[in-house]
Design a protein around this nucleic acid. Structure first.
Lengths: 364, 364
DNA sequence: CTGTTAGCGCTTTCAC
DNA sequence: GTGAAAGCGCTAACAG
């Protein structure tokens, strides 16, 4: 019967356990909050009674007093690929659950108005911590996040840097990912490796100063490619798939671009700046009658759509699960110590080797 | 300066506006809650003052008294394709936002324990309404949802039926979608249409009684196909792509299955039970050197991955945005009138015609 | 060490 | 019509 009554059960409160024990309700509160200055005996007695009576603390009610509800927030931009972020959200929530916290989602447009609305909502709900996923705030909005921390909320930023002492940040090592993938292919014997990306990626290797202004992932991945190729003394070839379609559809654009190029020369490996790019390449090559990976190896980034290709794509998996988990844990940490040292975590991509790449076959 | 101070601004409460107006705080409460039994003049005066002082009701605090916080919940199963559900969540949240509600997400495993945990969390947070997405509850768990409604929470179910007077439900018309798509292709002149699905779909048309036991979307889509073909007096051909890969990867399995079949006979159109299936078909056909759509038309379901194909897939778009919106609106409605008539909404798919289908070309 | 007193910000019942 | 009193369930100061 116990289970059936989970909902109807009269909710038992601190007061109940107080009268049961013939002590004061505030004593109960102290005992249950590990508040100092109570006899061990009392604490035990109360905990015991609480268990017996089936007491569950009402965090909502306590939130009114403390100003903190057991809830964490995720603020995420509408425009970013939410498909990709599903596993971020899920792992974030898992951490929250493990620490008895609920998760509130806020999708925002990339504008100040929406961001403010979201922030107000989080404050209103007494959310005790929130992570802002890249794209939700412009540099101009930094001040809002900072003031949030000053009001006692744990705050961090996922996917972009944030220079402030009490805002942790988690970033993806896009450039490194491009670098590693390229080196892997070089190690497989490939010399003529092409990278296909879209407008916004620069064709040449920039120095670090210049890169500051170009922090988008595609560009950074391309930079990693360029660096690896340069270091190996190999010729680079970056192809930009201009948006022929609108709304831009990466797969189509890459397919079309490749078809229009016609000859691929000595190219024996092609890297797409994302799995979508690589899928377009796959279709084009199939149409050319070029075997993957026997004649040309293909690889992508993200591991979002990599298993949708034939053959499945070798890809650099974006560490979304890890970042969701980290974002959650960092919030929990900071909630405990609002003044703790700032953490800036750089998460590495993971290489997932699948059927679309192979060592370079000797040309016949 | 106004904007900069959003966070620091001393929060102004009903008390503040009461002293300002030299009236009682409870009068303010009544005026602002459209409570009956107050002079129109008073109400206006209070509202005016509230606006001037920049008062915002603290729904969290009021939640403690009323038992309802301005929050809606989404309970969703871990196992279901969360990628697909991104647009559901987003549109649900949009509706919530429009009605000044926040959204709490709960991912659950498909088991009673997790479901109960989620329910407790929702109750704890005084959530005023929640939608349970198909897969989160087994028929055995019905009782939990019902008790939730009895405790005053608005509840509905998305993606599966639920027979109870105060639980609304939203279902997708999978069978109809299969039926419509097939008829569309028939209308385009195709006579030999093949359907590729995976284990669980039956090869023959079942009567409605039998179907009760087979409510999965793939099977229902297949049933729609079978019915349309039968009505048109055309030969049916359902191919099951058994899972050759593990974990099952639909694209690969369909590709392999088709390759193993070898000959496609007179087939001039192939329907995949989902976009993944259709993508696999696309790859296989490209390898066979069969032109899509000139020689064979291909179509899928969901519009989840349809733009990842070359050519892009004609597909039956699953009405996720609509269902998210509807789920939200139904909750809002029911919150107003907990005893309102049960709504059972059947949402139609929308046909999206893209490049992968065309009228049947005359055979040469 | 424990109990007392006072809220958090709002709602509700019941007098006036 | 409006105000006064009580309370939602918990916490935080301060006494005892």
């Amino acid at each position: 019967m116990q289970e059936r009554r989970y909902v109807r059960e009269k909710k038992i409160t601190m007061k109940d356990i107080a009268v049961h024990l013939n002590i004061d309700r505030t004593t109960v509160s102290k005992a249950l909050s590990a508040n100092p200055g109570l006899s061990q005996a009392m604490v035990e007695k109360v905990k015991q009674a609480a268990k017996e009576l089936g007491y569950h603390k009402d965090t909502f009610a306590s939130g009114l007093m403390t100003g903190k509800n057991a809830v964490l927030g995720i603020v995420i931009a509408n425009e970013i690929n939410r498909n990709i972020y599903a596993s971020f959200v899920k792992s974030f929530e898992q951490v929250a659950q493990d620490h008895q916290h609920a998760v509130i989602m806020c999708h925002v447009e990339r504008n100040q108005d929406d961001l403010l609305k979201a922030i107000r909502l989080l404050k209103q709900q007494r959310v005790s911590g929130a992570t802002f996923v890249a794209g939700t705030h412009e540099s101009l909005d930094r001040q809002y996040l900072i003031e949030l921390t000053e009001s006692g909320m744990a705050v961090n930023v996922t996917g972009s840097r944030f220079s402030h002492d009490s805002v942790d940040s988690i970033v993806y090592d896009h450039k490194r990912a491009g670098y590693d993938l390229t080196n892997y292919l070089i190690g497989q014997g490939h010399r003529h490796i092409m990278m296909i990306s879209h407008p916004g990626a620069s064709l040449k290797l920039l120095d670090d100063t210049e890169q500051i202004s170009s922090r988008n992932s595609n560009n950074l991945r391309t930079q990693g490619y360029l660096q690896a190729m340069h270091e190996a003394g190999l010729p680079t070839s970056v192809v930009i798939a201009a948006h022929a379609t609108k709304p831009p559809i990466t797969v189509q654009d890459c397919y079309t671009t490749l078809k229009e190029m016609g000859h691929l020369g000595q190219t024996s490996a092609i890297i797409g700046a994302s799995d979508d790019h690589a899928l377009g390449v796959l279709f084009a090559l199939k149409e050319f009658g070029i075997a993957v990976p026997q004649q040309i190896s293909v690889a992508g980034f993200d591991d979002a759509y990599a298993t949708l290709g034939v053959p499945q794509l070798t890809t650099m998996r974006m560490p979304l699960r890890e970042s969701g988990e980290t974002a959650g844990l960092l919030l929990i940490e900071r909630m405990k110590r609002l003044d703790k040292d700032k953490a800036s975590i750089v998460l590495p991509y993971e290489m997932i080797v699948r059927g679309s790449t192979s060592p370079k076959y000797e040309s016949m």
